[in-house]
Design a protein around this nucleic acid. Structure first.
Length: 269
DNA sequence: GACAACCTGACC
DNA sequence: GGTCAGGTTGTC
């Protein structure tokens, strides 16, 4: 699913559209997508949307009744604002009705989840508390310290949400390419220069991806149902066998931590 | 750390 | 028929 840039794009889009709107109804089409119990519709109906936020790859929808709706899109989840007239697609599991338009949660594989929790102390919910600092908020010093302190394969380390929140398979591969680091390197062995390069590359690729409204490799669409364009700027992800844009050698694909990993054997050491 | 599990669909 | 997919969690 969406990684940090895609989730951020959705949050920004929806923020300008639905903050201030009143919920006039909620429809629960699939019970199992709720992380805990299926909340009663009266916990939503009548409330206003007061703010939207993001914690790692989790979308946070703040309500005027002191509750927060937490949404994780995992691999194929979509959260879109649509008109009532638009036919409801297959695999739509939850709908919030506004006076005009509806917010729809759709997820082909049903890996994604929804959760409605009390706003008071909501960050203490287990799966949010377990997240490390956001990839766009962690300081350079903290990042370097974290790398030094762990003997982990760098690719797995960057993707570990309890270390840094927000990085997924695409942007980890892209950041490692931009920093010239082989994905199998051990985090603690990187020089200060290389570690600093990785920090800069991570921020840079995330910011550029947000500017391009995310990567639409397969299912991802933004809050309006439109595709992003950052996939056109990928250096390695999804380019196995194609020439490296820097040195011309063929991009390789290997498996690390059971995840597909793309890199340039010429540029990454 | 490796790997299966959760699901559906696209592609070979 | 088999393989693969932007993620996370739980189990050896």
């Amino acid at each position: 699913m969406p990684e940090l840039p895609e989730v951020e794009t959705i949050v920004r889009d929806l923020r300008s559209e639905i903050v201030g709107r009143k919920i006039c109804g909620a429809r629960f089409l699939t019970r199992s997508v709720w992380r805990r119990r299926n909340p009663s519709a009266r916990l939503l109906t009548g409330a206003h949307i007061t703010a939207l936020g993001r914690r790692g790859k989790n979308i946070l929808v703040f309500l005027s009744n002191d509750h927060v709706l937490i949404i994780h899109l995992k691999m194929t989840g979509r959260l879109t604002l649509e008109s009532r007239e638009t036919p409801i697609k297959k695999h739509t599991h939850f709908i919030i009705d506004f006076e005009k338009g509806q917010l729809r949660f759709n997820d082909i594989r049903r890996f994604g989840y929804l959760d409605l929790v009390k706003k008071d102390g909501f960050l203490e919910v287990s799966y949010l508390r377990a997240l490390g600092p956001d990839a766009l908020e962690i300081s350079r010093d903290d990042f370097m310290g974290l790398l030094k302190s762990k003997k982990r394969i760098i690719k797995a380390f960057i993707m570990d949400q309890s270390m840094i929140a927000g990085m997924g398979n695409i942007y980890t591969d892209e950041a490692l390419f931009c920093a010239g680091i082989h994905p199998k390197r051990v985090s603690s062995t990187l020089s200060r220069i290389k570690a600093g390069n990785l920090y800069s590359a991570m921020r840079d690729v995330l910011e550029k991806a947000i500017a391009a409204r995310g990567s639409s490799v397969d299912d991802y669409v933004d809050g309006k149902g439109e595709r992003g364009s950052f996939q056109d700027q990928h250096f390695v992800y999804g380019r196995e066998g194609e020439p490296c844009k820097r040195c011309g050698r063929a991009i390789k694909r290997i498996i690390i931590g059971s995840r597909s990993t793309h890199f340039c054997p010429g540029c990454q050491r």
